[in-house]
Deep mutational scan, measured.
Amino acid sequence: IRKQWHEDITQDLRNHLVHKLVQAIFPTPDPAALKDRRMENLVAYARKVEGDMYESANNRAEYYHLLAEKIYKIQKELEEKRRT
């Protein structure tokens, strides 16, 4: 379902936000690492998460909020795993 606010969101912005999700899960300073085949699954997962939020959000603010919440949860989980 195409929503009115979707018209304001460019593909570049969506790609940028997918990249932010990927960085939250696997922070790497090396952009070449993103071309690694093992990263493809991670990028696919991040695209799916972003797509789900894009579809479920009712406006741009909610879209950003859902993504920020997801990134926060991912970082929290990773922190907890590092501690144990």
Score class of each variant (00 low, 15 high):
Ala68Met: 14
His16Asp: 13
Val22Ile: 12
Asn59Thr: 14
Asp30Val: 08
Thr28Ser: 09
Thr84Asn: 13
Asn41Ala: 08
Asn58His: 06
Asn41Lys: 12
Lys70Ile: 01
Lys48Trp: 01
Leu34Val: 10
Ala44Thr: 11
Lys3Cys: 02
Ala46Tyr: 04
Met53Ile: 14
Thr28Met: 10
Phe26Ile: 13
Arg83Trp: 12
Lys20Phe: 01
Asp8Lys: 02
Leu42Gly: 04
Thr28Gln: 07
Glu69Thr: 07
Gln23Pro: 00
Tyr64Cys: 06
Gln75Trp: 00
Glu69Asp: 12
Trp5Pro: 04
Gln75Asn: 03
Lys3Met: 05
Arg37Val: 09
Leu67His: 10
Glu50Leu: 03
Glu69Ala: 06
Glu69Met: 07
Ile74Pro: 08
Met39Ser: 03
Glu55Ser: 08
Tyr45Val: 06
Asp30Leu: 05
Leu34Met: 14
Arg60Lys: 14
His19Ala: 11
Ile74Thr: 12
Glu7His: 14
Arg37Tyr: 12
Val43Cys: 07
Tyr45Gln: 04
Thr84Phe: 04
Glu69Gln: 11
Ile71Ser: 08
Tyr72Cys: 12
Ala61Val: 10
Ala24Tyr: 05
Leu34Lys: 12
Gln23Phe: 00
Tyr63Trp: 01
Leu13Arg: 05
Ser56His: 12
Val49Tyr: 00
Trp5Ile: 03
Arg37Ile: 07
Leu21Arg: 01
Val43Asp: 03
Ala46Val: 02
Leu34Thr: 14
Gln75Lys: 14
Glu7Ser: 08
Val49Thr: 03
Lys73Pro: 04
Ala33Arg: 11
Gln4Trp: 02
Ile9Lys: 00
Glu50Met: 01
Met39Gly: 08
Tyr63Met: 00
Asp52His: 04
Leu13Cys: 13
Ile25Asp: 02
Lys76Asp: 12
Gln11Lys: 03
Asn41Ile: 01
Val22Arg: 01
Tyr63Ile: 00
Gly51Ile: 11
Pro29Glu: 15
Lys70Arg: 08
Ala68Lys: 15
Trp5Met: 02
Asp52Ile: 03
Val18Ile: 09
Leu66Pro: 01
Thr28Tyr: 07
Ile71Val: 09
Arg82Val: 07
Arg60Glu: 12
Glu62Pro: 03
Arg37Leu: 10
Phe26Tyr: 09
Phe26Val: 13
Asp30Cys: 05
Ile25Gln: 13
Glu69Pro: 01
Pro27Gln: 11
Ala32Tyr: 09
Tyr72Ser: 15
Thr10Pro: 11
His65Pro: 00
Leu78Ala: 15
Tyr63His: 03
Phe26Met: 15
Gln75Phe: 00
Thr28Trp: 05
Gln75Asp: 04
Glu79Tyr: 01
Ser56Arg: 14
Asn15Gly: 05
Glu55Asn: 10
Lys35Glu: 12
Val18Pro: 01
Gln23Ala: 11
Asn58Lys: 11
Leu66Gln: 05
Lys20Ser: 08
Ala44Glu: 09
Glu40Arg: 07
Glu77Leu: 06
Lys73Leu: 11
Val43Pro: 05
Pro29Ala: 15
Arg38Val: 07
Arg83Phe: 09
His6Pro: 07
Ala33Val: 07
Thr10Ser: 09
Ala46Trp: 03
Ala68Thr: 13
Val49Pro: 03
Glu50Trp: 01
Ala32Arg: 09
His16Val: 09
Gln4Gly: 12
